[in-house]
């Protein structure tokens, strides 16, 4: 396990209509690390993940991937991250397999096939049924199946535990640990504490000036 820093954000400021959500937020995410963002509702967990995923622009500050500014290496950065938002990102009229195959054409999901990933995440037998017949927990699993397939080194997960049962949470944690052990990094937001003790937490209070 190396402790090379992958993503570094410095003095991030994000304002929503002049109301600062973050004011000078800094931190680094190192290889082999699982970082959990905690905090009450509305403190900006999702916004921070969106900023890290370059979905949401920030006002001031810097975001660096492997030492170079994100605006200079956005293409490279996008092929190095996997983002799963609180919406699963699945088309309900398509099957899990079709959804994953589509995603694999857009993003570097080449470690295993969609069929293998669906088996590993516990959706064997549901590969070819339309997603609208799946339960919320199964949908979440189908979305998380991309994590088995992705080559990305940094995972950004917004509330990944939502709707998962105990077994699902254990499976996810095993995935996260395996990823971290291989030198990847994970940033996730969650209200619940993970069972896993290796996790480092970043607490966001409303308008916090957090320093890691």
């Amino acid at each position: 396990m190396s402790s090379q820093s992958l993503l570094e954000f410095q003095a991030l400021t994000f304002e929503r209509d002049d109301w600062p959500l973050f004011n000078g937020l800094s931190g680094t995410i190192n290889a082999g690390e699982i970082l959990q963002i905690t905090g009450p509702n509305g403190c900006g967990k999702t916004t921070l993940l969106h900023i890290l995923a370059t979905i949401q622009p920030f006002n001031t500050g810097s975001l660096c991937w492997l030492g170079s500014d994100i605006s200079l290496c956005r293409q490279q950065y996008l092929s190095a991250i996997a983002f799963i938002g609180h919406k699963p990102g699945l088309k309900l009229s398509l099957t899990p397999r079709e959804n994953l195959q589509w995603l694999a054409q857009l993003q570097p999901l080449t470690r295993c096939t969609s069929a293998e990933a669906l088996v590993r995440i516990g959706l064997a037998g549901f590969e070819d049924v339309p997603c609208h017949t799946l339960s919320a927990g199964q949908l979440r699993r189908a979305a998380l199946a991309t994590l088995c397939m992705t080559q990305a080194s940094l995972w950004l997960l917004d509330e990944p535990l939502t709707a998962l049962d105990v077994q699902g949470i254990a499976d996810l944690e095993a995935l996260l640990l395996a990823h971290a052990a291989q030198g990847g990094a994970v940033v996730l937001s969650s209200h619940q504490a993970l069972i896993n003790p290796v996790v480092r937490t970043l607490a966001l209070d409303a308008m916090a000036e957090a320093e890691l």
């Binding site: 979905i55 983002f83 919406k87 088309k91």
Partner: peptide, 9 residues
Amino acid sequence: DGSLVQLML
């Protein structure tokens, strides 16, 4: 359904 974000990433 969130797939637009995946497309954009």
